[in-house]
C-alpha cells in the first residue's frame, strides 16, 4: 500500500475532480489538498492505474498527461467514486475545533453562519465527532465584535474607548483590519489615525464602538503580529518574583522569561516595561507573593496598598 496520507488524498481527489466536471487547475488543487504541485502531479499520475474492479481491469481512470504539463488536470471515467470517505476521528476533531475557534471570534451574521455550519459538520461527522471539546477565548463584548466586523467589511473608520493597562480610558480613532488570536488574548489589528501606523488592541479592553461615516484608506497589510513585543520595549526591567505554588497559574498570563520550580515556591523572571502593570500584579498576589528582587520593585505596590487600606480605615499591620 502507498503511504496512508497519499491513499487518503487519492480517495478525496477522485470525487473532487469528478464533481468539478473532469477539469481542475493543478496548482489550485494542490493548495486545496495541502501539498505541493509536484506531489499532486504524482498523485494524479497514479490515478491512471485506478479503476472500479466490477467494470474490469481495463476500465481505468483516464488522465490527460500532457494537460498536466500545462498545469491542467483533465480526467474522465472516474464516476464510480462520486462521494468522499467519511471523516476520520482526527479530521473531524481538527475541523470542528477550528470552527469552534472561528465562532469564538465571530459576531452577528458570521457567528450565526459559524454555528449552523458547526451543526451540519457535526451531523456529517456522526460517530467520528465524539470527542467533546470546548473552546473559550476572551473576545470581549459581542456587540463590540459585531461593530468591528461590520466596519472591517464595509471599510469604515471607527471610534472606540480603549482601556490602557486597565488604568485609564483613551479615545481611539482607527481603521480596523483584522481580529486575530495570539497566545491568550484576542486582538484587533487596526491603523491608528492618531499614531499614523498599525496598532494592536486587546478586544476585551475595547469599550463601545461607533462606526464613523468615513471610509478607511488603503493601508496595505498589517505587519505580522508579535505577542512578545514586551521583550523588545526599551526600558524593560528584569524582576524576579517568588510565588506560592498555588498561585503559580497567574504566571501563565505573564510575559515570563524563565520559571524555576521548587517544593515551596515558584520563581519567575519577568521583563517589566510598565510599573503600573507590575504594581497591579503584586497587589493581586497579596499573601501568595513570597519575595521580590530587586526589593525596590515592591515599593510602589506597598505604597498603593497603604493608600487603599487608609480608605478602608484599616490598620496596615
Amino acid at each position: 500500500m502507498k503511504s496512508d496520507s497519499q491513499v487518503r488524498r487519492l480517495l478525496a481527489l477522485i470525487p473532487y475532480l469528478a464533481s468539478h466536471g473532469g477539469w481542475a487547475d493543478l496548482a489550485e488543487t494542490a493548495r486545496i489538498f495541502g501539498v505541493g504541485a509536484a506531489q499532486l502531479r504524482k498523485d494524479v499520475e497514479i490515478l491512471q492505474f485506478v479503476g472500479d474492479q466490477d467494470r474490469g481491469p481495463e476500465n481505468l481512470i483516464d488522465i490527460d498527461i500532457e494537460g498536466l504539463d500545462e498545469g491542467d488536470i483533465f480526467l474522465s471515467n472516474a464516476d464510480f467514486l462520486t462521494r468522499p470517505l467519511r471523516f476520520t476521528k482526527d479530521e473531524a476533531l481538527s475541523l470542528i475545533v477550528g470552527l469552534q475557534a472561528v465562532a469564538e471570534l465571530a459576531a452577528g451574521d458570521e457567528l450565526a453562519a459559524a454555528r449552523s455550519a458547526l451543526e451540519k459538520l457535526r451531523a456529517a461527522a456522526g460517530e467520528a465527532a465524539n470527542v467533546p471539546v470546548a473552546v473559550v477565548e476572551s473576545a470581549g463584548d459581542p456587540q463590540v465584535r459585531e461593530a468591528l466586523a461590520k466596519a472591517i467589511n464595509d471599510k469604515r473608520v471607527v471610534a472606540f474607548d480603549y482601556d490602557v493597562q486597565g488604568e485609564k480610558t483613551v479615545q481611539v480613532q482607527a481603521e480596523p483590519k483584522l481580529v486575530t488570536t495570539a497566545a491568550r488574548y484576542v486582538y484587533l489589528q487596526a491603523w491608528s489615525r492618531q499614531r499614523e501606523g498599525w496598532r494592536t488592541y486587546r478586544l476585551d479592553r475595547i469599550g463601545s464602538v461607533t462606526i464613523l461615516d468615513e471610509p478607511a484608506q488603503a493601508r496595505g497589510e498589517p505587519p505580522p503580529f508579535d505577542p512578545d513585543w514586551v521583550a523588545s520595549r526599551p526600558g524593560a526591567q528584569l524582576v524576579t518574583l517568588a510565588i506560592a505554588p498555588k498561585a503559580a497559574w497567574l504566571a501563565d498570563y505573564w510575559p515570563v522569561r524563565e520559571v524555576r520550580k521548587s517544593a515551596d515556591a515558584v520563581e519567575v523572571d519577568l521583563l517589566v516595561a510598565d510599573q503600573h502593570w507590575l504594581t497591579a500584579q503584586l497587589l493581586r498576589l497579596g499573601p501568595d507573593l513570597l519575595d521580590v528582587q530587586p526589593a525596590a520593585a515592591l515599593e510602589p505596590a506597598a505604597a498603593e496598598a497603604r493608600d487603599a487600606l487608609a480608605r478602608y480605615g484599616a490598620p496596615v499591620k
Binding site: 488524498r9 478525496a12 481527489l13 473532487y16 486545496i32 489538498f33 468522499p84 479530521e91 481538527s94 475541523l95
Partner: peptide, 14 residues
C-alpha cells in the same frame, strides 16, 4: 492538526 483539518476540508470540497 493543521494537516488533518486540511484533509477534512478537502473531503468537503470533494
Amino acid at each position: 492538526q493543521s494537516e488533518q483539518a486540511v484533509q477534512a476540508l478537502a473531503k468537503l470540497r470533494a
